[in-house]
Design a protein around this nucleic acid. Structure first.
Lengths: 208, 208
DNA sequence: ATCAGTTATGCACTATTATACATAGAATAT
DNA sequence: ATATTCTATGTATAATAGTGCATAACTGAT
């Protein structure tokens, strides 16, 4: 039982690749096992075992997890694999070439959201927040938006600390979406094209 | 066909869709459960249970089956799902290297069914028709079946025009299903003797 | 009616996932 | 070093996938 237990021989390559993709998808979203647990309904302990101990997961569980990660399980013909791969690369999350300060701030926002979730078990609005953030993340953001971002974050943190006014979370989410729209409109800078991040799916990036 | 379409409540929607896709992939290749069983190592009984009784299959089994079917399990971002679907359609479910005349006739059959539906709003038998057609569509069909297909279609059209004898629709559906079975059974016949065709087809008929 | 091929079920039995807690161990802040 | 968060494990139990064999049920063919 090492730190990273080896995979059992139970699962074949294919299966292990999927599991690995799952884990990477979670990490790419900055999600913790506990969060994913809450979103998917799968207990944290089980997620851990799945990721680390090579549990031969059942399809329903896989579906639950992927759903929570905004992914979908698909059966693609071998012949189509390369094409599909290229598409998913395009669509997957890019940590875009960002001014360092912006990148850091985005990270902090994500942190704040996560902290929120940890503190308060039952919040429906949180998902809106997460989505707003996810919508902003893949954009190229000008330095002029650093301030607004920071303010949003501090507001969020204040709410979290005060343990009250959770109703305001929805409001924050709204302004965050608004901010996103502004960002988009300031310059016709659509999605980014390069992606050093293959992220999940059909990864052939081998390893051991 | 959906003799027994009763899935357990254990599996979620997503999971059931995958199972269905599996079954259809098998049928599209004209494979029988015993054959798939040999290729994948999964016992026929288990395959049957999986397809019909909504077994919550494990990932390793899924991988084994998909592999035997020349498919791969992929996790695709929700946003990319439509694109991926269009690709996989192009590659697999698509008119499978069909003689042009057959393809056209299938199209006409579909037309006839649709016309029927427009004329008569509520007919239970129509669904059977639709299913029979859907079951035929993904098959590789020999030119020898062109005549039977055509006859079925004209019968259908006659019924529709006469505005009567709707009871016969069920009969047509039955013979269509029958036709499907015949088509499947003639699989081990490497035909391809079409005339009206660009000579370069490059058909990648992958039957092993 | 009979036969052959395919799929669905029944049953006994095993192997493993899944779950609930609890908690240890690792990694990160403070 | 201390606290906190995150991940991995331990234990016990329930639920069920998986297997093998046999065979029923259904279909199309002779």
């Amino acid at each position: 039982m090492g730190l990273h237990a080896e995979f059992d021989i139970n699962m074949n390559y294919e299966a292990q690749k999927i599991i690995k993709a799952l884990r990477e998808a979670r990490l790419a979203k900055g999600m913790r096992q506990t969060e994913l647990s809450k979103l998917s309904g799968v207990p944290q302990a089980q997620i851990s075992r799945i990721e680390a101990s090579g549990v031969d997961i059942r399809l329903s569980s896989l579906a639950a997890l992927t759903h929570a990660l905004d992914l979908e399980v698909a059966l693609v013909p071998r012949k189509a694999v390369p094409a599909v791969k290229s598409i998913t690369r395009q669509t997957s999350e890019h940590p875009p070439v960002q001014p360092a300060a912006i990148g850091k701030e985005l990270q902090r926002v994500q942190e704040a959201i996560r902290a929120m979730q940890v503190k308060i078990p039952e919040i429906p609005n949180l998902d809106a927040l997460r989505k707003a953030h996810a919508a902003i993340k893949p954009l190229k953001i000008d330095m002029s938006f650093l301030q607004p971002l920071r303010e949003l974050r501090t507001t969020l943190e204040r709410i979290q600390r005060s343990q009250k006014d959770w109703a305001k979370i929805a409001e924050v989410a709204r302004s965050m979406t608004h901010l996103r729209n502004q960002i988009i409109h300031t310059r016709p800078s659509p999605e980014i094209q390069d992606g050093p991040r293959p992220a999940y799916t059909l990864d052939d990036d081998d390893d051991a």
